[in-house]
Design a protein around this nucleic acid. Structure first.
Lengths: 224, 224
DNA sequence: ATAGAATATTAGCCTTAGCTAATTTAATAT
DNA sequence: ATATTAAATTAGCTAAGGCTAATATTCTAT
């Protein structure tokens, strides 16, 4: 039963992980994927070889993997479904923003084009999620945004704080201000742990570490 | 990785199938399950042996399977999620009743207690779906209903038409009336194809075959 | 009661996705 | 430039769910 109507789960999760990790460093190494997914490198090697055979990634021994166009489409589609699902669950079921992620992590693999389309319509075709992260369009295009969430910046990048997303969470806003992360300030991204991990950055010559949730609230414009 | 966080899918689908088929004939035969699921009998044998080992069914060679209490709980929970999901998709995404089933068939395996609870609350704790089929409660109890959908009756059962669920589909209502299936009429169930299959019955001494969708609209009271 | 037909089971193979242990390749430090 | 270390790969195993072909059991009709 090679194909027919299979488990999208593993494939989509791998491609999504590779998509995220590639932001950090392009041919993504086996061990980074293993770390991100909580599996062993040997399992990753086998899987990326399969994905390569399916034309979803380009893999060269000891050299890492990159998404092909086809793989990128799948990753973006999965990301789109993830974000639409999060938004939808928050909207339609009144779940908190903290809570929706884990549910979406499962549901993103269980919804099809039709459901995606309906959710999109019901939500009014949103382009960004409450974190300020863009929701890829059906065709894979990502809304151009001059200000991007800090968490989406590449390592080594210098950028300026553009605005802090209003999460109606005044405690966090104060905390962020306290870190010196006020609009106009220039920071350099030193290190990003994938997914929910912390981000290390340099502000006014001083190193700081901020959590992923906080970083998602901080929109940045790149210093070219 | 024996257990941890597995694919509920196959297990739940088997148990659900067995639950439905048992209504027709209790120890359910291998081949009935195979037919219902579109797999080969040999695969079913292996699977029910596994389910037996897990304590979800009782299986005796050549004699068929029955659900254990644990298996029944899983089947009812799955059924509950299926029906809540159908209702929720119709409500929240404006999908037609025809359409929701196939989506629910996938999603029922992807939602957890929390989502189930939220959907239930948002829907106002419904006890029946639009077909008139009861939605099992969290504890597995099924709302007592004197009138049951025709599709839920056992084969050989004699029952009286109680009412026709108003589907706001006047064509179907007329069609049903045309078959002589008016309230008060006594019919005998001759044969039920599982799931969406047709139902053969005897009305006024004449055999008739009605589709599952039609049968779901006809609520019956048993003639004791 | 038994032959033949219908059902069910077993044996043996496949794929996916994981694991460990052993090996190979690449990177680093002297 | 080579020895050591770190990272990646291969080999070989596991379990779930499928499949086919072969075998075994039960049912049915004589």
């Amino acid at each position: 039963m090679s194909s027919s109507r299979k488990d999208r789960r593993a494939t989509e999760d791998y491609l999504k992980a590779i998509y995220y990790l590639a932001e950090e460093q392009d041919p993504v190494s086996t061990s980074r994927i293993a770390e991100a997914r909580g599996t062993r490198p040997a399992s990753v090697t086998k899987m990326v070889q399969r994905l390569d055979r399916q034309g979803l990634v380009r893999y060269r021994k000891h050299r890492g993997v990159s998404l092909t166009d086809a793989g990128l489409q799948v990753a973006l589609s999965t990301l789109r479904r993830h974000r639409l699902t999060e938004l939808f669950l928050a909207e339609a079921l009144g779940l908190s923003w903290d809570e929706v992620h884990e549910h979406a992590e499962v549901l993103e693999h269980a919804i099809n084009d039709r459901l995606e389309e309906r959710m999109d319509a019901v939500l009014g075709y949103p382009e960004f999620d409450p974190h300020g992260d863009p929701i890829p369009a059906k065709d894979g295009t990502i809304a151009e945004i001059n200000a991007r969430p800090m968490a989406s910046l590449p390592v080594g990048c210098k950028a300026r704080v553009a605005r802090i997303v209003d999460d109606t969470n005044s405690e966090l806003l104060c905390y962020i201000e306290g870190l010196g992360l006020v609009p106009g300030i220039e920071v350099e991204i030193k290190q990003i742990e994938p997914f929910e991990g912390p981000i290390t950055l340099k502000v006014d010559g001083e190193r700081r570490v901020v959590g992923h949730k906080v970083a998602a609230m901080i929109l940045m414009t790149l210093c070219s």
